[in-house]
Measured scan of single mutants.
Amino acid sequence: FDIYVVTADYLPLGAEQDAITLREGQYVEVLDAAHPLRWLVRTKPTKSSPSRQGWVSPAYLDRRL
């Protein structure tokens, strides 16, 4: 999967189903980028939180090589 970094805090609107909150600087794996406005991502697990999966706007993501 492609690795992206979150460029700004992402707080989903209440109406968005299956969306997750992301923090600036967080790394995520993009699982599904087929839709231009919503990408399915999975967060990297940390010592304090397990990995999470949900939909985010790709405008908040920047690809890492």
Results as ranks from 00 to 15, higher is better:
residue 55 W to Q: 02
residue 3 I to G: 04
residue 6 V to K: 00
residue 47 K to E: 14
residue 29 E to R: 07
residue 4 Y to Q: 02
residue 45 P to M: 07
residue 19 A to P: 06
residue 39 W to Q: 00
residue 24 E to T: 13
residue 63 R to H: 11
residue 4 Y to C: 05
residue 62 D to G: 13
residue 11 L to E: 14
residue 33 A to S: 14
residue 41 V to W: 01
residue 20 I to K: 02
residue 8 A to M: 14
residue 5 V to A: 04
residue 48 S to E: 14
residue 52 R to K: 13
residue 28 V to R: 00
residue 12 P to W: 07
residue 55 W to P: 01
residue 37 L to C: 11
residue 37 L to H: 13
residue 37 L to E: 14
residue 62 D to N: 10
residue 11 L to G: 08
residue 58 P to D: 01
residue 14 G to E: 15
residue 20 I to D: 03
residue 59 A to H: 10
residue 36 P to I: 05
residue 64 R to L: 15
residue 13 L to Y: 10
residue 3 I to D: 05
residue 18 D to Y: 08
residue 47 K to A: 14
residue 60 Y to R: 02
residue 43 T to D: 02
residue 4 Y to H: 03
residue 53 Q to K: 08
residue 24 E to L: 12
residue 37 L to G: 12
residue 14 G to L: 13
residue 48 S to K: 09
residue 60 Y to K: 03
residue 7 T to C: 10
residue 2 D to M: 13
residue 48 S to P: 04
residue 53 Q to N: 05
residue 19 A to F: 12
residue 10 Y to E: 02
residue 62 D to F: 09
residue 7 T to S: 07
residue 4 Y to D: 00
residue 56 V to Q: 01
residue 22 L to E: 00
residue 6 V to P: 00
residue 30 V to C: 03
residue 40 L to D: 00
residue 13 L to P: 12
residue 46 T to S: 11
residue 41 V to F: 01
residue 39 W to S: 00
residue 21 T to S: 13
residue 6 V to D: 00
residue 60 Y to H: 08
residue 54 G to I: 10
residue 21 T to P: 14
residue 1 F to D: 06
residue 33 A to F: 09
residue 11 L to F: 15
residue 34 A to M: 10
residue 64 R to M: 14
residue 65 L to D: 14
residue 44 K to G: 06
residue 33 A to Q: 12
residue 43 T to N: 02
residue 19 A to E: 11
residue 10 Y to S: 03
residue 58 P to H: 03
residue 13 L to W: 10
residue 15 A to I: 12
residue 18 D to S: 07
residue 5 V to N: 02
residue 50 P to L: 07
residue 2 D to T: 10
residue 31 L to K: 02
residue 25 G to R: 02
residue 61 L to R: 01
residue 46 T to P: 03
residue 37 L to W: 10
residue 56 V to Y: 01
residue 28 V to G: 00
residue 54 G to Q: 04
residue 50 P to E: 09
residue 37 L to N: 13
residue 28 V to T: 01
residue 56 V to D: 00
residue 26 Q to M: 12
residue 55 W to T: 03
residue 62 D to M: 14
residue 1 F to I: 08
residue 7 T to G: 04
residue 7 T to N: 11
residue 47 K to V: 12
residue 11 L to K: 12
residue 23 R to S: 09
residue 7 T to L: 12
residue 24 E to P: 10
residue 45 P to Q: 09
residue 37 L to M: 11
residue 34 A to P: 04
residue 57 S to N: 15
residue 17 Q to F: 12
residue 11 L to H: 14
residue 47 K to G: 13
residue 23 R to H: 12
residue 56 V to N: 00
residue 38 R to M: 09
residue 50 P to H: 06
